[in-house]
Design a protein around this nucleic acid. Structure first.
Lengths: 210, 210
DNA sequence: GCAAATTAATGATTTATTCAAG
DNA sequence: CTTGAATAAATCATTAATTTGC
């Protein structure tokens, strides 16, 4: 099944090293667990990502409390780690029928969720993508969901939530444009109530070998 | 502050998805971290888009008009229409080995190509994506066995030729982060003289038509 | 009880496929 | 048909819950 990437890696020959990792049977394989050599426990990633800098987290120049950082901020966070509140709201929206929020919606959602923790637009976007895909996946894997009735339960929080809903797999054919912005590493996730143009997030990207 | 807990319980009370039958599923317990988030002010109202034009909601079983919405002439125009110079440069870069430029590169490329015509970062990104994919596609289709016969296969029906093979010659599969930015419709590219101005493209997203 | 090892879950990217403008 | 644009599927990578051994 996964022959795919093996083959690819083979042809590629751009990554000659690392080829020993052919035993990739489970993606879950942790960093190493190498069985071939007991010594080479040498974390490639450490080298690959010395970028402690670029990925600043304590970005907030405004609120820089460098003493006793509470558990609040993700420790050296790399990826978004949603809080319960955030997940809750997202699921709520999802159940409400939202599948692929557009830029506006994402912006708003991000803004709201930002009250509960650091978050960026792309996190929201990815969350929906993944959630949708994985629900579909489960559905397929376990066959059918026993209790699938109640197509949608319009969330009634305090007002009518009027979100477009769309068939689960009916191929929505809904096209829209999304914003892109390419930036250098940067930060700026401070609250911003005016949305002018915020943009950018950053990124470490490799110097593009080749 | 307590609210979140309660709220959480409320939301998850019906979450069949994660606990379908199989015992294998370990619903990761809540991570509940801070009790400090006193920001329980999540106004859902904000989520409900005040505007959100008329959803036409043709959800009726009637003919699904999968095609696109009305005219919707975008002020800025339609889609990117590359000029010869742009294409030339892009192909040059492509031949040079570039496959998946990172944010920085895209930024620079965009900037340069901007001298020849309107263009945005995403156009560059998509171009590489598509070019790569289509080269691969052609490779597969006519891959080995260079048949001189006309490639034209006026297939009438929808028979897509399923090609199984896949071989490609080089794509590093580098991981990188990409920037996202969600904006409202707006069009303001221009500035092609300065190169300091960060890109920040925005996009016309369709008003969620359907 | 705790910390390393496992492993399920899931965030983030890349690739494949699809839709539709020109 | 060609190809820009967008989405879905597949994959990679990291986090945290659980298990395990002390």
């Amino acid at each position: 099944m996964k022959v795919h990437q093996l083959a690819r890696g083979f042809w590629e020959q751009q990554e000659p090293l690392l080829s020993l990792g052919c035993k990739r049977l489970r993606p879950l394989a942790p960093k190493l667990t190498d069985t071939t050599t007991t010594v080479s426990s040498f974390d490639l990633k450490s080298f690959i990502r010395p970028d402690s800098g670029p990925r600043k987290l304590g970005n907030g120049p405004s609120n820089d409390n460098r003493h006793s950082p509470p558990v609040e901020t993700h420790p050296g966070g790399t990826r978004w780690n949603p809080t319960q509140e955030q997940i809750g709201i997202l699921e709520m929206l999802y159940r409400g029928g939202m599948r692929t929020p557009n830029a506006q919606q994402i912006e708003q959602i991000t803004e709201q969720l930002g009250k509960f923790g650091k978050i960026e637009g792309k996190n929201v976007f990815y969350w929906f993508q993944n959630h949708k895909a994985r629900e579909r996946q489960r559905q397929k894997r376990f066959g059918h969901c026993p209790r699938k009735s109640a197509p949608i339960t319009p969330i009634t929080l305090d007002t009518r939530v009027e979100i477009i809903m769309e068939r689960e797999e009916g191929s929505p054919y809904k096209r829209k444009y999304r914003s892109w912005s390419f930036e250098e590493e940067e930060i700026s996730r401070s609250s911003s109530k005016e949305d002018e143009n915020r943009t950018l997030e950053l990124f470490p990207l490799h110097p593009e070998s080749r």
